[in-house]
């Protein structure tokens, strides 16, 4: 009986460890938990990118489900996803932009040249709102529901498969929850 215990203990440990490690397979370690999940968008008061005299606050995100896209001209992946965001906007998806740690002129040129998929763009040159949201790099795309609550965060490029697999079902789900 003791002998069996001796043989089985390492097996049990190996199986246990294997199980724990197995659950981590395929997880991207650079993708962190979203601390702000199910919290409202933090309070902010920032100028519009397009119109310096206008300003936006967290209240402007209330009322409609939207994608909240954090972007900057210094971010190559943002360039990659830009065309797809335009496609989504053409399909009628509401996308709000957060221009993160960027220069106004460069950002305006970018939108003029590549097109503007955003309903409105918040200008956050010091990354203030970004910091409060827990943005640690661009691009990041959040699903925000009608009440201005963060429901999902996607880190990295938004493309067809990300949209179809994750973002669209969420947008549909929260749109239905009116």
């Amino acid at each position: 009986m003791n002998k069996r215990l001796v043989y089985l203990t390492p097996l049990a440990i190996a199986l246990g460890l294997g199980l724990i490690l197995f659950t981590a397979i395929g997880k991207d370690p650079t993708k962190l938990e979203t601390a702000r999940l199910d919290d409202p968008i933090p309070a902010f008061n920032l100028a519009s990118l397009l119109d310096e005299s206008k300003s936006f606050s967290e209240k402007d995100l209330i009322g409609e489900v939207s994608l909240f896209n954090v972007w900057a001209t210094w971010c190559p992946s943002c360039r990659v996803e830009h065309d797809f965001l335009k496609q989504l906007a053409d399909q009628g998806v509401r996308i709000v932009g957060l221009n993160y740690k960027d220069e106004r002129l460069a950002a305006l040129t970018w939108l003029k040249k590549l097109g503007n998929p955003y309903q409105f763009t918040i200008y956050d040159p010091h990354g203030k709102l970004g910091f409060d949201l827990g943005v640690y790099g661009a691009p990041e795309t959040y699903v925000v529901d009608q009440n201005g609550v963060v429901r999902y965060r996607h880190v990295g490029v938004v493309n067809e498969s990300v949209w179809k697999k994750t973002l669209e079902p969420l947008v549909i789900k929260y749109k239905a929850k009116r």
Partner: peptide
């Protein structure tokens, strides 16, 4: 910091069920 970036950001995470191990 944890409010914004998650428990990940602390090298001394709080003792709670997720961090028991």
């Amino acid at each position: 910091m944890v409010d914004r970036f998650g428990e990940f950001v602390s090298y001394k995470p709080k003792v709670k069920p997720e961090t028991y191990m």
